[in-house]
Computed example of a mutant assay.
Amino acid sequence: MRSSFALIATAGLVAVALTGCTAQAPAPEATTGGSSELVEATGEFGSAPKVDFPTPLMPSETECTEIIEGEGPLLTEGQMALVGLAVYNGATGDELQVTGFGDEDAVPLTVSDTTLPGLMKGLTCAREGSRVAVVVPEKDGFGPNGNESIGIAPGDSLVMVLDVQRAFPSRADGAVRLSRDGFPAVVLAPDGRPGITVPKNDPPEQTEVEVLKEGSGPVVESGDTVVVQYTGVLWDDNSVFDSSWENGSPVTFTVAEGEGSQVIPGFSKAIIGQTVGSQVGVIVTPEDGYGDQANAKIPAGSTLFFVVDILGVL
């Protein structure tokens, strides 16, 4: 079982907020400095590193050093990354958490403005395949109150070593396809967030799927766990009832035909058989949705419409 620090990470309090290094992206928010260069992390990438640094290590600003160089672009806002995570108290050298390495499930961290500020700044120098040392002062960590539950006293710094094992895109990158007349219109914001307009006509009697972008990645099979971004609206009034975009993070769940699915049948029907990198729109009838039961913002008997970006398969 993961310790409290990993649970905080997966809950989003230290979800990774990363900025990219493409031509139009901002520069990294942290750079190599005297403190981060003192962190040694030896061992093979993906295996729990042996970490050593002098104590107390108390930087004035967040610093990061790429110990093992990755490939491809720097991670950017909206991405989910799977990482091995090792966390230490920079003042005392105490180990707080080592998880996600070797045979353990990697920790999913997402680009988000809800992240711990120092982790956000430090990981702007990371990319898939990177091993990164990040040194975080109190002001970019848990602040003046610390976090006694995980062993951080007021004033303590953090030292983190992360192996970025896999990074998913923030949006579907497939080839655009035209949808048929009468299907809900979808317009994308610059960050990929969909705006949806449902037509005034009555909804179809069966669940219908349209491919809005066709990806070139692996085909999603029944029983797969997928990484997606999505927005769902009610057919009747076009109101958004749920959106991973609004919630600040892509989500993962298992899609299946029948038992084992973690989503409503219409959602699984939309994704199974599609390729990673695709964006699909799906009109979900009540029979393939929530039926005659109300669910949160969804009235009983509602027809739903989702736009789903398929970002990866775990």
Score class of each variant (00 low, 15 high):
V98I: 15
V136L: 08
N89K: 07
M58D: 04
L74G: 06
E77D: 13
P137I: 02
L82N: 10
I67T: 11
D52F: 14
T114N: 12
E61A: 14
G143D: 14
V134K: 01
F142W: 09
V107G: 00
C64V: 12
R131N: 10
D113K: 09
K50L: 13
A91E: 13
G143Q: 13
K50D: 15
E128H: 11
M80V: 10
G141R: 05
K121G: 06
L57V: 05
Q79M: 11
V83F: 02
S60K: 15
P108T: 12
T115M: 10
P56T: 08
V132T: 14
N89Q: 13
V51E: 04
P117G: 02
E61T: 14
S112T: 09
T55L: 00
I68L: 11
S130K: 07
S112P: 06
Y88N: 04
G70R: 06
C64W: 00
V83Q: 00
P137F: 05
P108Q: 01
G90D: 08
T124Y: 02
Q97I: 01
M58P: 00
V134A: 06
L109M: 12
E128Y: 11
E69R: 15
L57S: 02
S130Q: 12
T99G: 01
V136I: 15
G100Q: 00
L96W: 01
D105N: 15
T65I: 00
T65S: 13
G70F: 02
T115E: 02
T65V: 08
P56V: 06
P73F: 11
Y88T: 07
L85F: 15
V87I: 15
G72F: 12
T76Q: 09
E61S: 12
A81C: 15
S130E: 06
L116H: 05
V136F: 01
V134R: 07
M120A: 09
L96V: 13
G90K: 00
L119H: 05
V136R: 02
A126I: 09
V98Y: 02
D140W: 03
L74D: 01
E128T: 14
S130C: 14
E66I: 11
T62K: 05
E95V: 11
P117H: 03
T76I: 08
A91I: 00
F142R: 00
G72C: 08
G118Y: 00
D105C: 10
R127F: 02
E61M: 09
E104H: 12
D52W: 13
T92H: 07
S112C: 06
G118C: 10
R131H: 12
Q79K: 09
P59S: 08
V87N: 05
P117A: 04
A86P: 02
E71Y: 13
A126Y: 05
P73S: 14
P137D: 03
V98Q: 05
T99D: 13
V107H: 02
G129V: 10
A133Q: 01
V136N: 03
V51K: 05
T115Q: 02
L74F: 09
G70A: 11
S112G: 09
D94S: 13
T62S: 11
T76E: 11
A126W: 03
A81N: 01
T99N: 10
E95L: 10
V111D: 03
T110G: 03
G100R: 03
T110W: 00
T55G: 02
C125Q: 09
F101P: 04
L82M: 15
V107W: 03
G84M: 14
E66N: 12
